[in-house]
Design a protein around this nucleic acid. Sequence first.
RNA 1: CGGGGAGUGGCUCAGCCUGGUAGAGCACCUGGUUCGGGACCAGGGGGUCGGAGGUUCAAAUCCUCUCUCCCCGACCA
Length: 484
Amino acid sequence: MAESPITARSQDFATWYQDVVLQGDMAEPAEIVKGCMVIKANGYAVWELLQRELDGRFKATGHQNMYFPLLIPQSFLHKEAEHVEGFSPELAVVTLAGGKQLDEPYVIRPTSETIIGHFFAKWIKSWRDLPVLVNQWANIIRWELRTRMFLRTTEFLWQEGHTAHSNHDEAVKEVRRMLDVYAEVAEDVMAVPVIKGVKTQSEKFAGALQSYCIEAMMQNGFALQAGTSHDLGQNFGKAFDVQFQNKEGQLEYVWQTSWGASTRLIGGLIMSHSDDRGLVLPPKLAPTKAVIVPIYGKEGGKDGGKDRVLEAAHRIAKEVGAKVDDREGQTPGAKFFHWERRGVPVVLEFGPRDLASGSIVLKRRDTGVKQPMPQAELAEKLPALLSEMQKNMFDAAKQRLRTNTVLANSIGEVESILKDVTAEKGGGKFVMAHVKDDPRCDLRVKEFKATIRCIPLVDEYDGPGKCIVTGEQVDRRAVIAKAY
RNA sequence: CGGGGAGUGGCUCAGCCUGGUAGAGCACCUGGUUCGGGACCAGGGGGUCGGAGGUUCAAAUCCUCUCUCCCCGACCA
């Protein structure tokens, strides 16, 4: 398979990113066809690992996987006013089917609140039926004006959780609990530090009371919304008439939540850790943790030196759970590059010299440091090394987040920090400023193409202050940044 | 939709200005020598240049129309 060069330029991030993802291949992970992404082998393997991590946690918190229809009667979308307003512009609609014009068109789901609301109404009658905790792994379509590899494709894979509760308190607890799950997976599994917060009313999910989110910072300082968890209140309950009888025998509308994370996470992963030499995968998400590259040396081949090296390499590989790259006709150098650019955490060199000395040379992907070690110690040291790398990658990303987070006390200051920031040039910051959750503030910030990313749940700064736009008192600083 | 750019073997691209009927590198196939950071030699297969029309003795190259993709903006996970 072809190995195109990575024409990475660390400052030209968009181009770099495009190159890594399009051509830089973790076995050529993806390409875009008409705004939709084709995810190839290794890219999908990373997604599968992420899925497993998320799904395990959903199940551990009592959720069940279900599957709902792809096509939703258009009228369903219209039942919740804000929802239809928010999603109408990006709907793909099926008007013709079976060779006939449909009486009522179907929309291809952009998200499933409506059709799930429809079923919740059928399934929920009593307080004994609650809570209902559902998750769906699915594809959805949002016809955005512009696509971006991994971050915004027309069709994407995601997971959407939908729950119904008998009271608001419990629903909010669920919203927060799932937000924590996302944050945990981002930080512990993806090694991507995130800020948990709430969206402004302007930025919230269409139809929600409140949207919670985790925001990550990419290497160019851009923000990436990596997961959301919505408190839907009774909006959808009322729209779809999801009522239950409480213990007192009275009818009440359910309180709902929804939460989702998508293949965008893979983009976030790449843009958080990868470097000019290709992908860097955190060990927990690396489909292949370690590869042994055998080197046969001058005496190789004929006199059996090659066989001895290979035999020993396979023995070691079996002990430590590594893979041997025994492909013919490729030099060791080519193999090193091959695995390096695919983000394999540990590449092991093993040749005649190691065979003689009982050692093996180990190179870690995150730091690029190469060191010899006794073969006998490898099996024991590898797991510890992988977890050290996992931590190291998180720490590095956390450090970057800290370094690029700044305080500002006037709108002019925020503007001067962010106005010239672009995805290509980099230099993005998370600007912490007191700003009110008021559409006027969102609009003011949009003047220089930034957004209020979130109001953090935990205030790590100086508490209350005056809004830099309206002058009104607010209780903590919010994150303002340019975002993908 | 507005502004840029690009469509030429599998991939990346040169050739176009100054028309003469297609090239390079990588990849692929065969044989051999290699093997501690993208090996080398020799031989070989594969494209009619996004599509349509026009000008011309002759079009990848000039003209007209059209399609597609990429980047920037508006919309957004």
